[in-house]
């Protein structure tokens, strides 16, 4: 898509804002609408826009499939690990109140960690899906 000058320039302008908005949604999910699921999808959509404009090869140099696999697994591991950490500190599985000195601070930290895990997994899987579909060659060609 090297001839679509307008598309390329507009996309270059928009992608940083989409990424910033995704981070806002991720970390502001406690106070307004949003959270890990939405942030992961928005982050992935920025990368999908990049892939659509600049091609799969370029996008794979930005985020490689290996990195995606590691991210997808590490998101679930962050989530499960938070639960195990709560057990190690003497609570039940996913009982965040044990994570910090006061229960409220512990809940805050726990929610932050698991939203991070959810966001990472959703982002990685959504981009993985898109890579999977766009990496396929058209069988008729």
């Amino acid at each position: 898509m090297h001839d679509h000058l307008i598309l390329r320039i507009i996309a270059k302008m928009f992608i940083p804002f989409i990424l910033l908005f995704a981070l806002y949604v991720q970390f502001h999910g406690d106070y307004g609408p949003g959270g890990g699921f939405q942030a992961g999808v928005i982050f992935a959509s920025a990368l999908i826009l990049y892939t659509l404009i600049f091609g799969l090869e370029t996008a794979m140099r930005v985020v490689s499939p290996t990195a995606l696999r590691i991210l997808a697994a590490s998101g679930v591991l962050i989530y499960g690990g938070t639960g195990v950490l709560c057990m190690l500190r003497g609570g039940n599985f996913l009982e965040y109140s044990m994570l910090a000195a006061t229960p409220l601070a512990g809940q805050h930290l726990g929610i932050f960690l698991i939203e991070l895990g959810v966001g990472t997994t959703v982002f990685a899987v959504m981009v993985m899906l898109f890579y999977g579909f766009s990496g396929r060659k058209d069988p008729s060609s």
Binding site: F37, V41, V122, V125, F133, P139
Partner: peptide, 24 residues
């Protein structure tokens, strides 16, 4: 429903991937 939407798109994607394989 929030979680159901995200899980729904993941399962739809698996169905679409199966469609691509069936076409091939």
């Amino acid at each position: 429903i929030l979680t159901a939407i995200v899980v729904g798109v993941a399962t739809t994607a698996v169905g679409l991937a199966l469609t691509v394989r069936i076409k091939e």
